[in-house]
Amino acid sequence: MRILGAIPTLLLVIAVAFLMVRAAPGGPFDSERALPPDVEQNIEKAYHLDEPLPAQFVRYLAGIAVGDFGPSFRYRDYTVSEIIRQAFPLSMRLGAMAMLLALIVGVSAGMAAALHKNSMLDRLISAVAMLGISVPIFVVAPLMVLVFAVSLDWLPASYAGSAGADRLIMPIIALALPQIAYIARLTRASMIEIMASDFVRTARAQGLRTASIIRYHAIKPAMLPLLSYMGPAIAAVLTGSIVVEQVFGIPGVGQFFISGALNRDYTLVLGITVFYAVIVIVLNLVVDLLYGFLDPRIRSR
């Protein structure tokens, strides 16, 4: 059921992105000097721009199905797929590491704050988390460079500046920071709510130790809101990676995306948008299915 539900979303998203590009005032080559009509026709034919819109869309969809996003308008020698294939592994490593870091640090900090509610530790964690969600990555990342690379010279200022693993440390932390903050706040709030619930009170009346209550009663319901946040979190990490790749000069998908955007490379920007949308929709579906599996009230339907 849910899998079937995701398909129309997917189609709708691709269609919207596709139509947006096609609705652009003027063709993709308008900005350049005027081409002779026959050359223009040849180009249009090569890119199938002469076909009716529905046919173009179907052609585009068919391409996506086999992983072909068409040629890039700027990087003439590459197809969009080749660019993605080349850049994505790096972006994925960055994003996955940041997400992992955010989960580990965020959940621990949130739990610690919730279990020592109103203590100094809780106030400190809450204040830092508030900073984390308030201060954007593009402010944090350059300041990190200023402090850790320029002033202290502990870490390389850019990806190209080192060949070792240390060149990814700052980018990962910068990308993870806002997510750490969000996850910590979310974990804290839901943990406090669960620990104040009637069924935890029952468990305490049954003489269960706090550790047992957390392990057997609280952890699962407290983590469910976190699970539903995973969808937006993945989208946020992808967005953040644009900035991080820009600041640290990492040749990932985000950097190609921005240079494509600044150079009006329609197919590249469209391709990356659709590619990321598909990833996010699929991951969301996984999260949804997982949620249904973990919540007995949904499972038994």
Partner: peptide, 20 residues
């Protein structure tokens, strides 16, 4: 819900690229 999880910025940037 469906829109909530989309990487919206990408669409916005796409929009920026396409239009003035």
């Amino acid at each position: 819900d469906a829109m909530y999880a989309l990487p919206f910025i990408f669409f916005v940037i796409l929009l920026m690229v396409v239009f003035e």
